[in-house]
Nucleic acid binder design. Sequence first.
DNA 1: CTAGGTGCTAGACCCAGGTCTAGGTCAACA
DNA 2: TGTTGACCTAGACCTGGGTCTAGCACCTAG
Lengths: 145, 145
Amino acid sequence: MADSGLSIGQVAQHTGLSVHTLRLYEREGLLASEVRRDGSGRRVYSAWDIEWLTNCVRFRASGMPLTTIGRLAKLVREGSGNEAERLKLLREHQRHIIEQLTQLRDCLALIDGKVASYEQHLAAGASGDPWQQQPQPAPAPDERD
Amino acid sequence: MADSGLSIGQVAQHTGLSVHTLRLYEREGLLASEVRRDGSGRRVYSAWDIEWLTNCVRFRASGMPLTTIGRLAKLVREGSGNEAERLKLLREHQRHIIEQLTQLRDCLALIDGKVASYEQHLAAGASGDPWQQQPQPAPAPDERD
DNA sequence: CTAGGTGCTAGACCCAGGTCTAGGTCAACA
DNA sequence: TGTTGACCTAGACCTGGGTCTAGCACCTAG
């Protein structure tokens, strides 16, 4: 049986990470359990490893730095007893994500506005530039320049 | 002291960028109009510059790379006639933001789940580890978080 | 007059997060 | 039996986005 073990290449396919990156993550201690090796020293990833890595991918995508993932991994590696710490880490990231969400929404609103005004502008073959410094008639009376 | 012009330090305060970064952005062509200089070569930012920079900050916060901001700035600098291109850039970023939003929401869901299970775990003084490979010799028939 | 604060440029430095290379091992297949 | 392809380690390299330094120019206050 394949014993539910995947090679690094397969894991790369599965997670979207490159094999280089997978090895990097391991070196940096991002894995919550040591990866098994086969008879000739090749990595054999368990289903659980893959689940963990999949979470790592999400964490990364939501802006968690490698060092933080590493801290979390360490806590998990060390086994139960530190759940409160893990929870703290998770809560921090939760907050961070929520902040990002509001920022993104703000920016999206800005962009939506711009897009709408450009669309309108183009549809109308209008002349004014929706995003341009007004060709100020006379800037300031006493401006040297 | 022209009330319609701010120094680089003031702009830094206002935008949250460092003066270094402001100069960097200028060097990299991120500004949509050339910054004026006073008699002794110091930058004098107009209200419009600041508005633009504020938008840049949002763009950055939503993951737009400096090079893209630079492209947009260039289009705006070149004046009207290229609105369609600007719109394209904006639409791309709009899409990008929307993707990020869904990713973030996914990750938030994951984290929310973990947080909830840790909270429950801690509240119950439970023994099982909500996020640990089951230390069971036999492969788990049914993996759950 | 002198000092402090702010600004200027050019360019070095830094960190995160990958990505790629060199040189080697292994197993399978034609 | 030799070639291929996936894998191994160690370590160099690259990009993006800042951040900091050196050395100098102004202005204003004391």
